[in-house]
Measured scan of single mutants.
Amino acid sequence: MNLTVNGKPSTVDGAESLNVTELLSALKVAQAEYVTVELNGEVLEREAFDATTVKDGDAVEFLY
């Protein structure tokens, strides 16, 4: 899956889609429990991480 992460191209191997929690784990995001996630310009509530799917071509920003 090809994404733009914090403005840079990134690839997650072996996945066509992941939820936000899985993406944080796959990318080994440090202190993931404290990060705010913006997906395609929309800031996500932490409670929505498990239910929100990240797909090929999406833009993700991790805000600390």
Rank of each mutant, 00 (worst) to 15 (best):
L18Q: 03
K28S: 10
E42G: 06
V20G: 00
E16S: 14
S25N: 12
D56Q: 07
D50A: 09
L18W: 07
F62M: 06
S10K: 13
G14V: 10
K8C: 13
T52E: 03
L27Q: 02
K8G: 05
T36Q: 10
V12Q: 03
D50C: 08
Y64S: 09
A26E: 07
V20M: 10
P9W: 10
A32V: 11
A59F: 14
E42M: 13
N19K: 07
S25M: 13
V29H: 04
E22A: 10
K28Q: 12
T52N: 03
L39I: 09
E45V: 09
T53I: 15
G57V: 02
D58E: 02
R46H: 08
N19R: 06
E33T: 08
E38C: 15
E42P: 00
G57S: 03
V5N: 02
G7I: 02
E45G: 09
E47L: 07
T11N: 08
G7E: 01
S10V: 15
E47C: 10
N40H: 01
D56S: 10
R46S: 06
D58P: 01
A30K: 09
G7N: 05
L3W: 01
R46V: 06
T21E: 05
T11V: 13
V20T: 01
N19H: 04
G7D: 04
N2F: 09
E16V: 14
T21K: 07
G14P: 05
F62C: 05
V54H: 03
T52L: 06
V5W: 03
D50F: 06
E45Y: 09
A15C: 13
V43Q: 09
S10A: 15
N40G: 01
Q31G: 14
E16T: 15
V35D: 05
N6E: 02
D13I: 15
A51T: 15
V54S: 03
V60E: 02
L18N: 01
T21Y: 09
V54K: 01
V20Y: 02
N2C: 12
L3T: 01
V12S: 02
N40I: 03
S17L: 09
A51F: 14
A51H: 14
K55W: 07
E22H: 06
L24N: 00
A51S: 14
V60C: 05
L24F: 04
G7F: 04
V5I: 14
E16A: 14
S25R: 10
G41K: 04
T4I: 13
V37Q: 02
A30H: 12
A15T: 11
A51G: 10
V29Y: 06
A32K: 10
L44E: 03
E61V: 14
E45I: 09
T21P: 03
L63G: 13
M1Y: 05
E22T: 07
T21A: 08
V37F: 06
Q31M: 14
V12H: 05
N19W: 04
L27K: 00
D13A: 14
F62E: 02
A48K: 12
D56H: 07
A48S: 11
T4P: 00
D56M: 05
V35W: 07
A30N: 12
T11M: 11
V20R: 00
T52Q: 06
T36C: 10
R46F: 08
S17Y: 11
E45H: 12
L39R: 00
V20W: 03
E33C: 12
A26F: 14
K8R: 12
M1V: 08
E47V: 07
L44T: 06
